[in-house]
Every structure is written in structure tokens, then in C-alpha cells.
């Protein structure tokens, strides 16, 4: 990763700090609360069957089914 990209990442990180994005941490429980998810990993996503299974598994895990 070059220096310019690094600097941009740092600048961006500083910006999020400045605008108080950290306050969202208090909403993490709600943001990740179980819910009827609208989107899911495409079942026919390209790639091998193994990868697909992993993706679907991860989706269910994250949506706490």
C-alpha cells in the first residue's frame, strides 16, 4: 500500500472521529439485533459449491437464525 493511500485512510479515519461516528457504538446492539433480513447471499453465486455453502452459513450465522 503506498503512502498516499495510507494518508487518505488516516485522513478518513480522523474525519469519522471528528464527526462523532463513535457514538454509533451505542447502537451496535440494535444494528445487529435479529431481524427479518431483506437481503441474503445469492444462492446461485458463482464459484464452487463449498464456497456457496460457507457464504450461506455465514449469512444465517450473522442474521442469528
Amino acid at each position: 500500500m503506498d503512502d498516499r493511500k495510507d494518508a487518505k485512510i488516516m485522513e478518513r479515519r480522523g474525519f469519522f472521529k471528528m464527526v462523532g461516528l463513535g457514538a454509533v457504538a451505542g447502537a451496535a446492539t440494535l444494528a445487529n439485533a435479529p431481524r427479518e433480513a431483506v437481503a441474503e447471499v445469492a444462492k446461485d453465486a458463482s464459484g464452487s459449491g463449498y464456497r456457496e455453502t460457507e457464504l450461506v452459513k455465514k449469512f444465517y450465522e450473522l442474521s442469528k437464525f
Binding site: 454509533v24 457504538a25 451505542g26 447502537a27 440494535l30 444494528a31 439485533a33 431481524r35 427479518e36
Partner: peptide
Amino acid sequence: LRADAYGLLARLLCDVPDGALLTLTSEITG
């Protein structure tokens, strides 16, 4: 944190709110 912010908005807008959602929302500290 960005993902959480999007998740929060999604959760609040995706369906009719119930008591549990409101309770969790009331526990947010800014």
C-alpha cells in the same frame, strides 16, 4: 461503526416497530 449505522437505519425502517425495537433504541447513548 459505519456498518452499524447502516444496520441501525435498516432496522428502524424495515418494518413496523415493536416494543423490543423501541426499548433497544431507547438504550442508545449519544
